[in-house]
């Protein structure tokens, strides 16, 4: 007994140490970005690798918030992320649930069809031509509908649902519930970890979208915040094909680049801790026994 708890304690200690090292490696560049955003440009140039705000300055943030562009973009981003995630999750869940039933005729074809779209995509221009013919030009729907269901997400959610014991559904059917009722009142509560996970995945994708926004949307006031972020990063001179850039650009200092990244990423970062409670152990199990 004594030996076992000692080795158990030891492995816990090793675990904690390893996780600590991993966390440190992960967080150092993040600290750099955040610290740089709160420093002056001169301090940033002079230092080797800033980890704490040096020569504290809010200039970068003042620049970011100096016009309403940032906040306008934030509002748009919030709107499309919340609405879009809800819609995408709903549609995906419904289809995944349907496809989880092995006795549904036509299931195989749809599965194959979905799989093909996992690897084949039509390309930006054919998509653009097709979707604008649907009327998506200059519409925020262009940021939601084209990627409404991610085949990857669909397949994984389907496989998760398939692992739910059949008895649960059978007993509900005996009680007279139809499939829709079963989905929403029984399967959903049992799949909260799955739903939380993929809602997060969808949300992040929508939140990060900027390319489609530029392509489909004409009015600057409808741009999500990531468009602003990308523009600032681009102007700050990224690596790669620098010779292709035009010569008429005004270049914001590097601190501004850091500030926009921090400000545009912070909202989505705070979502995860709220979702963590769904990852608690044994979420599913009570209902089978009960």
């Amino acid at each position: 007994m004594g030996n076992k708890s000692l080795s158990a304690k030891l492995s816990q200690a090793v675990l904690i140490a390893v996780l600590f090292a991993v966390s440190v490696v992960m967080i150092i560049p993040i600290l750099h970005v955040v610290a740089s955003s709160f420093s002056s440009q001169a301090a940033l140039i002079q230092s080797k690798f800033l980890l704490f705000p040096t020569d504290f300055s809010l200039d970068a943030y003042k620049y970011v918030f100096s016009t309403s562009t940032f906040m306008d973009g934030m509002k748009i981003s919030l709107l499309i992320t919340v609405a879009g995630t809800a819609l995408k999750m709903l549609v995906t869940l419904m289809l995944a649930y349907a496809l989880a039933h092995k006795d549904m005729p036509g299931r195989k074809i749809i599965n194959y069809a979905v799989l093909i779209t996992l690897v084949f995509s039509a390309g930006m221009i054919p998509n653009f031509i097709t979707f604008t013919s649907y009327g998506l030009k200059n519409s925020l729907w262009a940021l939601i509908l084209p990627a409404l269901i991610d085949p990857f997400n669909l397949i994984v959610i389907r496989s998760f649902i398939q692992e739910i014991p059949a008895e649960i559904e059978e007993s509900a059917k005996i009680d007279g519930a139809n499939d829709a009722r079963i989905l929403f009142s029984i399967i959903v509560p049992l799949s909260m970890a799955t739903i939380a996970t993929f809602s997060l995945f969808y949300a992040v994708v929508i939140w990060n979208s900027y390319f489609d926004a530029i392509l489909y949307i004409n009015e600057a006031k409808k741009f999500p915040v990531q468009v602003l972020l990308r523009q600032i990063i681009l102007l700050s001179g990224s690596l790669g094909d620098s010779s292709g850039m035009g010569l008429d650009f005004y270049v914001p200092p590097r601190t501004v680049r850091m500030a926009v990244i921090t400000a545009a990423t912070a909202p989505i970062l705070v979502v995860y801790p709220f979702l963590q409670k769904y990852f608690a152990k044994g979420v599913m199990l009570g209902s089978v026994k009960g």
């Binding site: 930006m124 653009f128 390319f211 530029i214 990308r230 523009q231």
Partner: peptide, 15 residues
């Protein structure tokens, strides 16, 4: 925005 300017031009011409 410059981030996707040439693609936008291509798409405009193509459509």
């Amino acid at each position: 925005p410059a981030a996707a300017y040439s693609e936008k031009i291509n798409a405009t011409i193509a459509s």
